[in-house]
Design a protein around this nucleic acid. Structure first.
Lengths: 243, 243
DNA sequence: TAGTGGTCTAGACCACCGG
DNA sequence: CGGTGGTCTAGACCACTAT
């Protein structure tokens, strides 16, 4: 194989494909050294910078690793490692071919209960925005979401906004501090009566519990809550090693 | 801020840090355009290639996005998106400061039951290697693993090997076809009596169910099984947007 | 047409590694 | 010491975008 410089596919990508094929076909096996950058450069008629770009791409994909002063080596595939991605609800449902919608169940100012106050680092009883929503896929509940958000802007709560906007947008509208990052924790749980009713399943059914903490750029929490995903409808699939 | 060329930190990384700080501090806000590559190059006394390297790093981290012919723009933080990583059991427990060990409960050749045969694309009744293991953290069960592996090499089953080796290694030893990739599916479930006993919890407890399929480079399955993680001890934490 | 990012080159110097 | 990957430069040409 060689590089077709008249192709629309850029040379760095062509070389990456060639090397990937050679690795996947077993021509180079785990532990083997690839030709040096100088050799690849000479063999394929590309500058070393271009060769390096191909190699970085393969390295990011986990197919090879480089060792300073030694060379470039084929990695062992990491078969016991999995990466799962939970995207924004609407996007995720769209990707599965489902029509998603949101049903706002409750949205009001409440005095922060003990746990929410602790999570938001506010005094107990501070007015916070409490939101309960059902997330539907093809009209049937998929998830049940409860959130506490800082509320220090005095802006009115418009129900039709809450119904359509993503959580970060709501925070922006009602808090002085903007969310800059989030931390999520995924657990399993059994649904209590109220949760089960909201999700149209039997009490005691298993579910994913996704806890979410929204943080401002200074690290202060601006939102906290948890979202329950029905165990009978929702699952996560590992993302294939992408190139 | 400017670049310290005598520093051990390479210029491309220094520039990336400067820009990241400016973005996180709000100096550039979501949607804003960054200075053009030519301007950055001139301002910081770096070649355009080096500036581009800094920008690619920020783009990979999701902080900025580039648009051909238009410019480079600050992205909105993706706060409703989470990435979870499940690593190899021993590594994961080590990362949590727990001592992990494996207890081999069963390892023998069995005629493939219907489901395993279908998953491995073998005729029902074909001899396959069946393995049951307890994965312990600090001596207490954390996960319960059951796997069916192709067995067409006639190599004897050595118990002490199975106890310590990762699954891909076992497959290599007992099957002609090497595993090249894996697909995992994460679900929630309730434990039945046998599973609960193995995990030292009450029957009906919730758990993560991780299904794993090992594939050869030609796409043929070479291993299949599922691993149950105790819901009361195991949780996944989102990986922070890394740079 | 002028400005933008995307790609590529042919050099250069460096730190690291092995014999 | 020679070979390796890591970094950087000063150019170049291209396709795309806006005016």
């Amino acid at each position: 194989m060689s590089i077709d410089k008249s192709s629309f596919i850029p040379p760095y990508y062509q070389l990456a494909q060639i090397l990937e094929r050679q690795i996947r076909s077993g021509e180079y096996r785990p532990g083997d050294a690839l030709p040096s950058e100088a050799e690849l450069s000479e063999k394929y008629g590309l500058s070393r910078m271009t060769v390096r770009r191909s190699l970085s791409q393969l390295a990011r994909a986990g197919l090879i690793r480089t060792e300073k002063g030694k060379g470039t080596f084929v990695s062992r595939p990491q078969l016991d490692r999995a990466v799962f991605v939970m995207d924004e609800f609407h996007k995720e449902m769209a990707a599965r071919g489902l029509t998603s919608s949101v049903r706002l169940l409750e949205a009001r100012l409440v005095p922060a209960p003990e746990k929410a106050a602790r999570k938001l680092q506010l005094p107990v009883g501070t007015k916070v925005l409490y939101i309960r929503r059902s997330l539907l896929a093809d009209g049937e509940p998929m998830a049940y979401d409860r959130k506490y958000l800082r509320y220090d802007r005095g802006r009115p709560i418009l129900e039709n906004e809450l119904q359509y906007q993503a959580l970060p947008d709501m925070v922006e509208k009602h808090a002085e501090v903007l969310p800059a990052s989030s931390k999520m924790i995924l657990q399993v749980t059994l649904l209590n009566d109220e949760e089960a009713r909201a999700l149209h399943v039997a009490p005691g059914s298993p579910a994913f519990l996704l806890e979410q903490i929204l943080l401002a750029s200074d690290g202060r929490p601006v939102g906290w809550g948890w979202c329950l995903y029905r165990g009978d409808r929702y699952q996560l699939t590992s993302v294939p090693g992408t190139i």
